[in-house]
């Protein structure tokens, strides 16, 4: 370790502001980029899942529409969605 103690390390020989500002902003920017990449994956998978669920619902609604469920208003609504 080049520094005598921890406070000397944080002081950076008087250049604390510039050194820690540079490293702070850089790490923050990289972290945001990484978080965004992970987040994007979750969003995309979420969207695919939703689409799949919708397809399942549509199929179910069509199947039940065929098997005569005219007086069930709720299912009528779902099938009209397709």
């Amino acid at each position: 370790m080049q520094f005598d103690n921890l406070s000397a390390f944080f002081d950076m020989g008087g250049y604390a502001f510039y050194v820690w500002l540079s490293f702070g902003v850089s790490l923050l920017a990289l972290a945001l980029l990484a978080v965004d990449a992970v987040q994007q994956k979750r969003v995309l998978f979420e969207a695919v899942k939703k689409e799949q669920a919708r397809k399942v619902r549509i199929k179910a609604a069509q199947a039940s529409a065929k098997s005569n469920t005219r007086n069930d208003p709720q299912k009528e609504e779902v099938s009209s969605e397709s």
Binding site: Q2, F9, G13, V19, S26
Partner: peptide, 24 residues
């Protein structure tokens, strides 16, 4: 980063501000 910030020697001209080099 840790090596650069804490263990590398300081520059004789620029002192510790030189440590920005390890990210710049």
């Amino acid at each position: 980063i840790v090596w650069g910030l804490a263990f590398a020697p300081a520059d004789y001209q620029q002192g510790d501000s030189f440590r920005i080099i390890y990210i710049h």
